[in-house]
Design a protein around this nucleic acid. Structure first.
Lengths: 191, 191
DNA sequence: CGAGAGAGAAAGAACGATCGTTCTTTTACG
DNA sequence: CGTAAAAGAACGATCGTTCTTTCTCTCTCG
């Protein structure tokens, strides 16, 4: 009894969200209209407005999905890590891998912020929550690994993550990756 | 003989460009239509399309103006510098000051790139040229100051500049500034 | 058991508003 | 008087959203 009323996430809603996410990320949010999303997803307007309140809700869901994916990746790394130091190394390698393989069009959150100037906008609040969470997790890992000034080191790693995502997109991705790995390992107190 | 045909830059064109630049930067490029630019500038459509080929040309002029402003700031710093090391310090302080005081809505080039996915687009080419130039200038200053691995250090400083511009906008600008100054001075081999 | 009423979701036309651009008219100056 | 710039109406296209219609099940009652 997989009622589409009680849990409609698996069906058209999920497909719609994935299609919209791809377009939003690859072409920018304001640049893609609902018509193209609907056309690419193979659904009609009524389907969209049944599962989402509007385009902005779709954008929020897109960023929340990105946030969930990153949290999932981090949890997977935490399971594989054999020590706090190893965890730091896995996080740094994971960021480099993500910038090099998946997020080749920059950071979804930074890009979204470029198009949403109002900090009170729900879209911006998703971005803020994600960044606060990510910084806190980094600080936690640094503290667990016994680092001094873990707050400062976490700030540095957040900045470097922003930098490698932007740099991989705008400049030479290979050089950005190497620069990131070197500086991030240094900032995290890794050999 | 300041003919408005031979050098129309001083008059309505300059005013239009400054108005458009402010709106593009503060609200995003795709988010501001020509109507609002015209309204805020106090001119009509005909004036815009006389001085610019279209909105895209206006965007290109906006970014070229940002590029020119940064080049001007760097030249001013070069005049004040009393030594290569001092020049490096001035550049780093200038970036921090710029992110903290003027560019509080992120980097105009990074933000523009979020909205223009096509690398062949004229807008993107302005961004590329700016970044290549900036990186080369940094490397030149580092070499002049006798630093080893000036290419690597230049890459690092470019990344840190991206990071502080993004971080000042999205996170706590004071913390971003401090983190940038510390890491950038370290990367440049400054005390 | 089968026909029909009814609810729910999808399809697609249509809405006003705004997008960037072009055109015709008016104004101003040499 | 003639030329060029500015004013503003108007263009088709697209924006995000809403509305009416169609379809498809399910449940019910004859």
């Amino acid at each position: 009894m997989k009622s589409s009323r009680e849990s409609p996430a698996s069906g058209p809603r999920q497909h719609l969200l994935e299609t919209a996410s791809r377009l939003f990320y690859l072409e920018g949010i304001n640049a893609v209209g609902v018509d193209r999303i609907l056309q690419q997803a193979g659904v009609t307007r009524a389907t969209l407005y049944r599962h989402f309140a509007g385009k902005e809700a779709l954008v929020v869901a897109y960023l929340e999905r990105e946030d969930a994916l990153i949290r999932h990746h981090l949890e997977a790394a935490a399971d594989r890590a054999v020590s706090p130091d190893h965890m730091l190394e896995l996080v740094i390698e994971g960021i480099a891998e993500d910038a090099w393989r998946h997020h080749t069009r920059g950071c979804p959150f930074i890009n979204a912020t470029a198009e949403f100037p109002d900090p009170a906008n729900p879209v911006r609040q998703v971005v803020s929550r994600h960044r606060v969470w990510f910084r806190a997790v980094l600080e936690e890992y640094l503290t667990a690994a016994g680092r001094e000034d873990s707050a400062i080191k976490a700030d540095t790693l957040v900045m470097l993550r922003d930098a490698v995502l932007v740099g991989s997109y705008l400049d030479d991705s290979e050089a950005s990756r190497r620069t990131f790995l070197r500086t991030a390992r240094c900032a995290a107190g890794l050999p």
